[in-house]
Simulated assay, not measured.
Amino acid sequence: MTNGRLIVLTGPTAVGKGTVEAKLRADHPEVWVSVSATTREPRPGEVNGVNYWFISEEEFLAGEKAGEFLETAVVHGMAHYGTPLKPVEEHLAANIPTILEIDLQGARRVRERAAELGLDVVYVFIAPPSFEELKRRLIGRGTETPEQQAKRLETAKVELAAENEFDVVIVNNTVDKAAADLWQVIATEYGL
């Protein structure tokens, strides 16, 4: 069904997944990163089709029922999120390096569906150098209250414990090195 292998990128909160992915894309613009769909309202500055595909709950549920998503989730009991399947399949069929950046639960759902969909997947975990460094990064970014930080750190402990579920673990000591390591995985999988 597809030529390339889907790269599923996961890691705990504040590990720098998005920063590593942005560096990878800056160095290798040929890499395509899937854009998720959501039923939540756009935040200031977010662009439809760039940050997310913003769709109605009715559209989302109809697409979910029709099998149009690789994986879906309800986040915080309110908004639906999901990975549209068709663009992923199209990019893989064209042998375009394809990444899905997703949380641990999403990665597990992809694992459940991959075989039935004929998808070949490489699961990559971005890890912090240490839990203390992860904590420092989370607090240092200053975007969450102390209560939110505590909750995210508890979640991060659970996510870190799942590291052995992944095919490849990349330690994010520096963004440049982690992005280069991620490119090595992609280059190997795609014969680049």
Rank of each mutant, 00 (worst) to 15 (best):
P42I: 01
P42T: 04
P42K: 00
P42F: 04
P44K: 14
G45Q: 09
V50I: 15
Y52R: 05
W53E: 04
I55K: 02
I55A: 00
E57K: 05
E57A: 03
E57F: 02
E58N: 03
E59N: 01
F60W: 03
E64A: 15
K65L: 11
F69C: 09
E71L: 13
E71K: 13
V75S: 09
G77F: 03
G82K: 02
T83Y: 05
L85F: 13
P87W: 07
E89S: 00
E89D: 04
H91Q: 08
N95Q: 04
P97L: 10
T98C: 09
D103C: 15
G106L: 11
A107K: 04
A107W: 01
R109Y: 00
E112W: 08
A114V: 11
A114W: 10
E116V: 13
V122I: 11
I126R: 06
A127K: 08
P129T: 04
L134P: 07
R137V: 04
R137F: 06
R137L: 10
L138R: 14
I139M: 11
R141S: 09
R141I: 00
R141H: 02
P146K: 12
E147K: 14
Q149W: 07
A150D: 12
A150Y: 06
K151A: 13
K151W: 00
R152N: 01
E154Y: 12
T155C: 09
T155V: 05
T155Q: 15
A156S: 12
K157P: 01
V158Q: 12
